[in-house]
């Protein structure tokens, strides 16, 4: 290590690998991974979410859930921003993920054409 700055740069690179283990409240993306979801392509959606988060250095919890009954609209993806209503997006394609993250997760504007419901937790 040649300087403190060099160490701090290295930390920048490394800290997101461990950010998941921080216990504070963070935005949450929940992906429907029941049999129906997986059959409709939820795994690709999940992969796209993870890649987008990594690319943009976002601190977001990604988790999955089982079937909630709207199998018709799978793949489903819920976004829970701290202090906001939970928004459900459905009938997703891989390309939609980027829009949801940029427009809603980062800028807080609901992507109306993809949203199918929002409800109180």
């Amino acid at each position: 290590m040649k300087s403190l700055e060099e160490l701090k740069e290295l930390r920048e690179k490394l800290q997101k690998d461990i950010a998941m283990r921080d216990d504070s409240e963070k935005p949450k993306i929940i992906i429907g991974m029941g049999t129906c979801g997986i059959a409709a392509g939820a795994r690709n959606i999940l992969q796209a979410v993870l890649e987008e988060i990594d690319k943009r250095n976002l601190d977001i919890v990604v988790t999955q859930t089982g079937c909630i009954g709207m199998c018709e609209k799978e793949p489903l993806l819920d976004v829970q921003l701290p202090g906001k209503k939970r928004v459900t997006y459905g009938n997703l394609e891989v390309n939609d993920v980027k829009r949801i993250i940029v427009e809603y997760v980062i800028n807080g504007k609901i992507v109306e054409d993809l949203a199918i419901a929002h409800f109180e937790e």
Binding site: M1, S3, L4, L7, L10, R11, Q15, K16, I18
Partner: peptide, 19 residues
Amino acid sequence: IGEYIGLGGYEAAGKALTT
């Protein structure tokens, strides 16, 4: 060592030695 540095490890040593 990456996880330790990712959580701010060795920065105290860096601070002491350089400032």
